[in-house]
């Protein structure tokens, strides 16, 4: 069978979701953000939420998320996305409201807004990309940076006496009564991508059903910040990040 016989519209089983537009994404080659964007766009399309989904973009690498997924977006100040999402969901309860935040945005400057939104049980979804580093500003230490990990601001490796311990946000959010679903996923293999997608789907359903706050942490790579190739970053993530940030559901009420 010739390639021309296979490559026909009726034989297509996978393509870029329509809501992920043709804009060239500014992310570095191999960045996990792109995979998560794709999953979100697919889900919004498959779940028929195009006119209901409202995204809140962060400050950090995903600051331009609104340029890539064709739904309504609000760009937040650094760390404030859960506060904005709170108001949007309370004022428009029939919408599916989600934030998309990195670990610099959420785990450092935005911890207060995150914990309190979850504790109030706001019916929002928090997508939390944890790659253990500040990507956009050039690879500085984040609260989630592993001990010993070299960054621009921990050039000899993160030390407890200087920098304290890596912060596990999902455990914190799972501990408050208002959260209904907290899970930690990754997108480094085809199987992981499928699992992450069903986790985010469940979170979106929770928002529509008014069950409380859902947080989906995606342990991710930052190959530019980690100074590794995308494939090596995935390996390093599995060998190092997963020990501190283990995969799986932390809470599912």
């Amino acid at each position: 069978m010739e390639l021309n016989d296979i490559i026909k519209p009726e034989n297509r089983v996978y393509q870029k979701p329509r809501l992920l537009n043709d804009n060239h994404m500014h992310y570095c080659p191999g960045c996990s953000h792109g995979v998560v964007h794709k999953i979100i766009a697919e889900l919004i399309e498959e779940m028929g939420l195009e006119d209901k989904a409202i995204g809140i973009a962060p400050v950090g690498c995903a600051v331009f998320a609104y340029n890539y997924i064709d739904i309504d977006w609000i760009e937040a100040a650094h760390g404030r996305a859960p506060a904005i999402a709170t108001a949007v969901k309370r004022l428009q309860p029939t919408k599916m409201v989600f934030t998309y935040q990195g670990d610099g945005d959420l785990a450092a400057i935005g911890t207060c807004e995150t914990i309190h939104a979850a504790n109030r049980g706001e019916n929002i979804v928090i997508i939390f990309i944890n790659n253990g580093i500040y990507g956009m500003t050039g690879g500085q230490m984040a609260p989630t940076t592993l001990l010993g990990m070299k960054t621009a601001t921990t050039p000899y490796g993160r030390r407890v006496d200087l920098n304290g311990y890596p912060l596990r946000i999902s455990e914190l959010v799972a501990a408050v009564d208002g959260s209904c679903y907290v899970t930690r996923q990754s997108v480094h293999t085809p199987a992981a991508v499928r699992k992450a997608k069903s986790a985010i789907k469940k979170a979106f359903e929770n928002s529509m059903a008014g069950k409380g706050t859902s947080l989906v942490e995606i342990v991710s790579t930052c190959n530019s910040g980690w100074k590794k190739s995308p494939a090596d970053s995935n390996k390093w993530m599995v060998e190092n990040m997963f020990a501190k940030y283990p995969m799986g559901d932390l809470k599912n009420v």
């Binding site: 404030r80 506060a83 709170t86 108001a87 207060c112 807004e113």
Partner: peptide, 9 residues
């Protein structure tokens, strides 16, 4: 800080 950002939203 949260209040003004809720108002923004």
């Amino acid at each position: 800080v949260a209040a003004i950002n809720m108002v923004y939203g």
